[in-house]
Amino acid sequence: MSAKTAIYALTAKGAVKAHELAASLRADSYVLERYAADTDILFTSLKDTVADKFSEYEAHVFVAASGIVVRMIAPYLKSKDVDPAVVVVDQEGEFAISLVSGHLGGANELARLIGDKIGATPVITTATDCAGVPSVDLIARDQNLVIGDISLIKHINAAFLDGEKVPVYDPDGVLEISAFKDYFYAVDDFAVLSESRCGVVVDWRRHELPERVLALYPQCLTLGVGCRRGVPADEILELIRSVVGDNGIALDSICSMGSIDAKNDEAGMIEAAHILGLDLIFFSAAELDEIEVANPSGMVMKHMGVNGVCEAAAMKLANAKLILVPKTKSARVTAAIAKKI
């Protein structure tokens, strides 16, 4: 499956509209068997098809009645940060309704795009869009910031809707707020947040947050890992979690993980990266040997032909000259963290 969007149609008119949308959106079209064309993926049960395909696509467009769609997707909805976008289009193509994941999933944008493609009126009901104010979840997404506790978004957006400015503690100046000066103001003192209705912290460091303060994590840290052969994922994860915990680092700010290419078939390392949701990148010994590490190892040089793996991999990923968290060892695993410059 290469398409990111699925379109579903239940009627003859709906099939025509689905074909039009599938061509313009480069989407897969699922059409009830009796109305399906050669280019469609036919189905006999919408309920079974949605159950099978809901988690496989980033967006779903239903040319159907809203009530039917709600009943079909309800069992599979989890959270606004993971649910795919869902848009409902009537078979006449008059309206495109953003139903689920309007902001983070992109359903609002998709409804507008469908409107442009077929002349439908986008129907968008998220409060910030209706009021013409920004939403902190979209700001975070657009600036590549990971949202901490997604349930706190509502407090920030409610303040925007009430015309109140929200304090932002951002020691590294990561969040670009110049375009949102009517909604945010920067503070240098973390304590200010506890005195405010709500607030935002933008940092790769962990903080004990006051109530209604939302953490946004910049994707600025890289993780280097080395291990002996056959080490299981849980042993690798144990050291990683110990390193971030002991150094006050937010795991959500780590954006990638690296090691030497001699470990590219190491099942435990691959599984650990998957569990953490990190891209795992391997470097050759020659690439890692270009990096001057803080803690060279004669043993690693003997077996791998480099002065170090974890520090060099972390620094290579970050394009950094210095290590943020030097090599930390357990019995069979090493880990280090660097910060992008």
Rank of each mutant, 00 (worst) to 15 (best):
T11A: 11
K13Y: 02
V16M: 07
A18S: 11
E20W: 02
L21W: 06
L21E: 05
S24E: 15
E33Q: 15
A37K: 09
D40W: 11
L42D: 13
T44F: 04
L46H: 13
S55F: 12
E56S: 03
Y57M: 09
E58V: 04
A59D: 06
A64L: 03
A64V: 05
A64H: 00
A65T: 00
V70G: 03
R71L: 02
A74P: 01
S79A: 09
D81H: 07
D83W: 08
A85D: 07
V88R: 04
V88S: 00
Q91A: 15
Q91I: 07
E92I: 09
F95E: 10
F95R: 10
G102Q: 07
A107N: 08
E109Q: 11
L110T: 02
L110I: 06
I114Q: 12
K117C: 05
P122E: 11
P122C: 06
T128C: 13
T128D: 09
V133R: 14
V136Q: 11
L138W: 11
I139K: 09
D142Y: 08
Q143E: 12
I147S: 07
G148K: 12
K154S: 04
A158E: 06
A159E: 12
V166M: 10
D170Y: 01
D170Q: 09
G173Q: 08
L175M: 15
I177K: 00
F184H: 15
V187F: 07
F190H: 03
V192Y: 14
R197G: 11
G199R: 01
R206F: 05
P210R: 15
E211M: 04
L214K: 05
A215M: 14
L216Y: 04
Y217M: 08
P218D: 11
Q219I: 01
T222K: 09
T222Q: 11
L223D: 04
G226L: 04
R228N: 11
R228S: 07
R229C: 02
G230Q: 09
V231P: 00
P232D: 11
E235L: 08
I236K: 12
I236E: 12
L239R: 12
V243W: 12
V244L: 10
D246L: 13
N247L: 03
G248K: 14
A250C: 14
S253T: 08
G258T: 06
G268W: 03
A272V: 00
L276D: 07
I281D: 04
E292P: 01
V293F: 11
V293S: 05
M301T: 07
M304G: 01
V309H: 13
A313H: 10
M315L: 02
L317N: 00
A318I: 00
A318E: 10
A318S: 02
N319R: 15
K321M: 03
L322R: 14
L324A: 03
S330W: 08
V333W: 14
V333E: 06
V333G: 08
